[in-house]
Design a protein around this nucleic acid. Sequence first.
RNA 1: GGGCCCGUAGCCUAGCCUGGAUAGGGCGACAGCCUCCUAAGCUGUAGACCGCGGGUUCGAAUCCCGCCGGGUCCGCCA
Length: 575
Amino acid sequence: MDYPIYECRKEIISALENVLSRLKYDCKIKLEIPPEGMGDFAFPCFSLASIVKKPPNGIAKKIADMIEKNVWIDKVDTQGGYVNFFIDTKHLINSTLKLILEKKEEYGKLHKKNKKVIIEHTSANPNGPLHVGRARNPIIGDTLVRIFRAAGYSVESQYYLDDMGKQVAILTWGINNLDQNDVPKQDRNKPDHRAVGFYQKANELMEKNEKIAKEINEIIKRCEQGDSKTIEMIQRAYSPVLMGIKESLQHINIKIDRFVPESMFVRDKSVDSVVKKLRETRYCHEQDGAFYLDLKTFGIQGRNTRFFFTRKDGTTLYATRDIAYHLWKAKQADILINVLGEDHKLESKQVEIALKLLNAKTLPKAIFYAFVSLPEGKMSTRKGRVIYLDDLIDESIERAYLEVKKRREAELSEKKMKKIAEIVGIGCLRYNIIKIQPEKDIIFKWEEALNFEGNAVPFIQYAHARACSILLKGKNMKKKLESNVLNHTSEIQLIKQLARLPLVIEEASISCKPHIITTYLYETASRFNQFYRDCPVLPEKNKVLQSSRLNLVDATRIVLKNGLDLLGITAPEEM
RNA sequence: GGGCCCGUAGCCUAGCCUGGAUAGGGCGACAGCCUCCUAAGCUGUAGACCGCGGGUUCGAAUCCCGCCGGGUCCGCCA
C-alpha cells in the first residue's frame, strides 16, 4: 500500500510486534483511534492483561518503554492500559500533501483487486414511478457501486427486471383494456407517471371483478410458460415505465449498467434446470403436484417452513427464477451484493439455502433497508398513498433554490442559481438517505429529508466552494509547498484527516457501510472550517506560509471532491 | 403465535459486529462572533437512569436471557 497512513500504521504494528515478541507476549495486534488529543493510534492492553495476568497499565508502560522510535513514531505515551502513539506529523504532512496534489482525483482509491463485483439494486416492479418508500434502494446501491469501484473492484450494477409478475401483468391489462379517460389523471407528464393510473385502476377492477382477475392470471400463466407473444406484450406495456424510472435515476446521478429481465431465465430454460436439481435434493417434497423444499432444518421458523418452487401446474415462482438469476450472476462475478427491502429477508434466505444446495460458486451478500413510511402509514402505489421520487427531487431543488436566492440573489445570475440549486438539492437528497444506516426505520418528513443545516450536504459543498473560491483568488500566487511551516493545530488536524481517506474507503467497502463516508466528509469539512477560522490564507504576509496553505486548501478541495463523488454528489465551485 | 430488524437528550443520529480511556455529532433552545479569504460559517451554555428488568465480566450502550414499544415477514404472490 503506497499511502502514508498505511505505511505509518504498518510501522507501528511492526514496532509493536517486535516488542511483543521480545516480551514473549502472544496476541493479535489491533489498533484503535484514541479520543482527541491522546495520540493518533492506540494499542489496548486489556486482552493481553488477562493472558499474562498482569495489570494492563503496567503492561502498557513496559511496552511503551521498549518501542523504538522511527520515522513515523514521534512519541509513545500510556494512559489507562493503552499505549498511545503520536505519529510524526512533519513526515505525514509532507508525504500526504505531496501525494494528494500529485494523484488528484485518484487520491483515496485503493489498488486494483482484479475481482468483479455485481451489485444488484433498485429492481423495482416497472408498474409506476419510483416512490420514496423504496428510494433508499437505488441510492444505497449506487453509493456502494461507487465505493467498490474506488476500492479497486471492477463493478457492474444490475437491475433485475420483474417482467413476469402480477404487478406488471395488471399494468399490461390496464394499458390494453382501459381508456385514458377511465384512469385517474396524473399531474406529471412523464411516461412512468402516465402509466401508473392504468395500474391503479386495473388493480381496483381486478379486486371487484372475477372475470378481469381471470384475464390477468391468464397473462401471468402464458408468460410463465415462456410464451413469446405475451412476454412481448408485457414488454410494450412496461417499457415506457422503465424509461421514466431510468430518467429519474439519471436525475440523481444513477446509471444502471445492465437490466436483466426475469423472463430471460424462463426463455433460456435455466429455471427448468433449477427445478430439476432442486427436485433431486433430499429436502424436496410434493403436495398436489407442487414441489417445495422443507427448510425446517435450515433454521427457518414460523407457520410455514415450506419453500414452494413450482406450482401444481408445473410453472415456476418468483423465487425459483431468482435462484436461476443468482446462478447466472455467480458465473460472472467474485462478489455478489444485493440491495433489498427488508420484506425480502425470508425470500433472500430461501434463495440462499437453495443456492447452497445447488453448490453455487458465489453466494450473495444482502444489504437490507427498512422502508421509508409516511406519518399516516406505509406508502403504496396501489392505493395512491405515495410520495414519488420525482416529487421529492423537485421539492428538494426548489427548496435549495430558495436558499441560494436568499443569500446570493444580488451577485449571481438566475442561471447560476438554478444550477447551484440543482447540485445542492440532489446532493441533499442522496446525503440524507446515506447518512442514516439502512436498517433504521424512517418516517418521512419533508423538513428532515430536505434538511439544509448542520450534518447535511450543503455544509460539505460549502466547504468545497470556499476552498475553490480561495484558490481562484490566489491562482496567481506562488505554488511552493513547504510543509514544515504548516504547524498550527488546525492545519495539522486537517491534514491528518485528509490522510485518512484511503482507510475510510477501505472500511466502507469491507463493511458495506456507505454512511462511513458521510461521517468522514462531515468531519473533513468541519476541520477545514476550523482551519479557515484560524489560518488566513490570502491575507497571510509570510509568502512561504501563504503558498503552503494554498496547497493545503487545494488538497482539501481534492479530498472533498473525491469524497462527494463516492456519494454521487456534485462538488460545486461556488454556491 | 413464531422468525428477523429497530429502540441512545424535546427531535434526528454515531458508537454495538470485535466489551475498556470523559457515550461522539447534528437539529431545536439559550449566549456570543462579519472594518478580515462566501456567516450555507465559527465559539460557548443547557440537555442522556444508552426502552425496562435480570445475568456474564475486574469492566456492559456494546455480549446472554426475559419483558415492553415500533417495523417487517411467515402466499402454489412478487
